[in-house]
């Protein structure tokens, strides 16, 4: 029985450990204990998507998850998407399409889109809309986000084609 423990997990490819209290959410720990600022708490209800991360390759809302349960998992955040200076194709597509304004929700959208394309390389408009229905952008860059998904999908397909 405890309200404090050490969690050990993989964060963007690096093995890490941290002492956490029972009440601490994942987004709090990422922000305050790992100084990662790309994962952001906004609505606190798992419905805006600003705090999206991957836990064991699955997108989750880090505001609704207790850090306690990260123990033994593989966590990826927006900071872990680019390979050094080389952006992920989804990140490139977001720039190309101008798929953001203030940028606060952008990490979450990019994480969701990347996951969508990993499951479905050529999603229909309807599939994109439904998948991203749980991400909110108050600047309303939605039309450009739709463009970005298509650009990213095309990039991924052309990379796949180019492979021998």
């Amino acid at each position: 029985m405890s309200d404090i423990r050490t969690i050990r997990f993989t964060l963007n490819g690096t093995k890490v450990s941290k002492v956490v209290e029972a009440h601490e959410t994942v987004v709090d720990v990422l922000t305050r204990k790992f100084d990662l600022s790309g994962t952001r708490e906004s609505c606190r209800q798992g419905l805006c998507g600003c705090c999206t991360i991957y836990v064991d390759s699955n997108p989750v809302s880090s505001c609704l998850m207790l850090a306690w349960f990260l123990d033994g998992t593989d966590v990826r955040t927006i900071e872990g998407l680019a390979d050094g200076d080389t952006l992920d194709p989804v990140q490139e597509a977001f720039i190309e399409a101008g798929a953001f304004q203030c940028g606060f929700c952008t990490s979450g959208f990019i994480m969701m889109v990347k996951h969508l394309l990993s499951e479905n390389p050529d999603p229909s408009d309807e599939e994109i809309r439904h998948r991203l229905a749980g991400n909110l952008c108050r600047c309303s860059a939605y039309p450009e986000i739709m463009d970005a998904v298509k650009i990213a999908a095309a990039k991924a397909r052309s990379v796949a084609k180019a492979r021998p």
Binding site: G46, L47, G49, T52, N58, P59, V60, S61, L64, M65, M112, H115, H130, R131, A133, G134, N135
Partner: peptide, 12 residues
């Protein structure tokens, strides 16, 4: 499922 919450919630 298609209109139930969102994928992040459905994953958990």
């Amino acid at each position: 499922m298609n209109t139930l919450a969102n994928l992040r919630v459905r994953n958990v």
